[in-house]
Design a protein around this nucleic acid. Sequence first.
DNA 1: CCGAATCCTATCCGATACTG
DNA 2: CAGTATCGGATAGGATTCGG
Lengths: 140, 140
Amino acid sequence: MVTARRISGPCQSWPEDSAFIREVLDRIGDKWTVLVISTLSTGSLRYSDLQASIPGISQRMLTQTLKHLERDGLITRTAYAEVPPRVEYDLTDLGRSLLNAVTAMAAWAVAHHGEVASNRASSEATGVGRAKTSVTTPAR
Amino acid sequence: MVTARRISGPCQSWPEDSAFIREVLDRIGDKWTVLVISTLSTGSLRYSDLQASIPGISQRMLTQTLKHLERDGLITRTAYAEVPPRVEYDLTDLGRSLLNAVTAMAAWAVAHHGEVASNRASSEATGVGRAKTSVTTPAR
DNA sequence: CCGAATCCTATCCGATACTG
DNA sequence: CAGTATCGGATAGGATTCGG
């Protein structure tokens, strides 16, 4: 039985909202969504601009990501029926609001990636996550 | 720390930091990490408590997630050499700092999931992400 | 220029069984 | 109680090719 939950402070854990959180994480957790959103933060861009601005992306993944974002109402797609086809993508207000949350995450990453890296290195040295040697018998 | 952003500035995209962002997203983007972190936010818990508090998780995924988090220095693992084995997990300061960013994401999810859902529904009705009917010829 | 469609591979993740 | 080991299905995502 859970004994230690809700010790003190404002109810931090989400009881039934976890489905929503996972829904959002499935979107921003994939490899390219965050890059696309952040690239679009400067203003509308066309398909080829996006592809050029996001180095390792394939057409398949760019198209798929754009469709998902459009479906969720985070970006808009505007196709101009011109002789050389032109399509522009832009963030919606909803997309921009997500950008703020994403940017907070990015700030954390930039601020703490060194810490994480050094922890990971020392863990590898002591074999924390690999071997079964870690008993870490506490002074007790 | 790095304030590193500017909503309506000229150059929003991060040139070389994207690797760090992806590193963090690979961690919090997986299915269980956020749940584990948020569950630990109330205080230290043992293995079986975590498993009970996170309904659909398997031992495999719980163990793997815990190891990753420990390796990155986001949680601590303390094993007591007792007759019934007891292991406690706890967030580090680094883990708590990430929790803040994650909570911001969760707040966004709770605040806007309705909007996203309705957009997705109307997109499905008009066939935005499925058919090739969407030409959306703008007035131009 | 902007995709769609197909193929193929690596990885994720759940279920199950076993150990100390 | 707290894991480890192995199998197998499902999926992400890259390369390539074709269409409008």
